[in-house]
């Protein structure tokens, strides 16, 4: 784990970041990103955070020690994105991420996926750790100064595992993304396109040396979703998730550059839901 010093920092995005998003070749409206504004000062005590997301091998050690069964295993199906969209598929879980027969020892050093909030919290408790809070996650990803990505403000698709790394053609529209993904599905089936943790180090690391904080897997935090300011005008369905969902950070291999920014917020259903792109890392009080 990496020791992160205590700090006072401004969590979230300044208005200029949303102005920049609206100037880019991406289709999403401003209200979709508004939940990451306004910035607000947050004081953090010193803490430790995992350098990498929890891997398949580490999660297996937890399961072997405790007999733990994940939510996806208990209900008998998991969520993958096939050629047509999200689908609940039988036999999908962390050991068989695309369905029966898709597990591989080659994935041992990849981030574990199909992790619900409960799964992630249970592992963290067993490991003597906890999930990071949302501010802890963001500060570990970018440090005291605002920056778009862990390494700085200039995008480089070779520094993170995103869809832009995998696709050879530019991805700026949903249609282009779907075309890329359909090609992958026809070739491999709906398999997560994760990479071994640390594959983009050191060039993709945060100022503190945290790896894979942009892309690879979505990461659960412990924080109950709330707006930074109740007066914020944001997407009404995002607002409705406040007080129920838990914050997810970092984006994943499925996303474009805009969704893997350090201050980007997503909110996940914590009641057992997970997908083939959802993992986590742990934190600990210093």
């Amino acid at each position: 784990m990496l020791l992160i010093p205590g700090a006072l920092f401004d969590q979230g995005s300044p208005p200029a970041a949303l102005d920049w998003l609206m100037s880019q070749d991406q289709p999403l409206p401003r209200i979709w990103f508004a939940d990451e504004t306004p910035q607000r000062p947050v004081a953090l005590a010193p803490y430790r955070i995992d350098r990498y997301p929890v891997t398949v091998a580490r999660f297996r050690a937890f399961v072997q020690a405790t007999g733990f069964r994940t939510d996806a295993e208990d209900r008998g199906f998991g969520l993958v994105y096939d050629e047509h969209g999200w689908i609940e598929r039988s036999g999908v879980h962390w050991q068989e991420p695309g369905g029966p027969g898709t597990g591989s020892v080659a994935a041992d050093n990849h981030p574990v996926v199909h992790m619900s909030w409960r799964d992630a919290s249970a592992y963290a408790q067993w490991a003597g750790k906890r999930l990071p809070t949302e501010p802890e996650w963001e500060y570990a990803a970018r440090g005291a100064e605002f920056r778009l990505w862990p390494w700085g403000d200039d995008w480089d698709d070779k520094r993170a595992n995103t869809a832009e790394l995998h696709a050879t053609n530019g991805l700026t529209t949903l249609e282009a993304w779907q075309q890329w993904w359909q090609t992958v599905c026809r070739r491999d089936g709906p398999l997560p396109q994760t990479t071994a943790v640390g594959s983009f180090s050191p060039q993709g690391d945060s100022p503190f040396g945290c790896a894979d904080m942009a892309g690879n897997v979505y990461e659960w935090t412990s924080t109950l979703s709330q707006l930074y300011d109740e007066a914020t005008v944001c997407d009404p369905t995002v607002r409705k998730a406040m007080g129920t969902y838990r914050v997810i950070r970092g984006g994943s291999w499925m996303n474009l550059r805009y969704q893997v920014r350090c201050s980007e917020r997503m909110h996940g259903d914590p009641l057992g839901w997970s997908s083939f792109a959802h993992g986590f890392r742990c934190a600990q009080d210093a």
């Binding site: 979709w32 969520l79 998730a241 996303n255 997503m266 909110h267 996940g268 997908s275």
Partner: peptide, 9 residues
């Protein structure tokens, strides 16, 4: 209100 299991982003 229809809420995706992952909202925002």
């Amino acid at each position: 209100t229809i809420i995706a299991p992952m909202a925002g982003g």
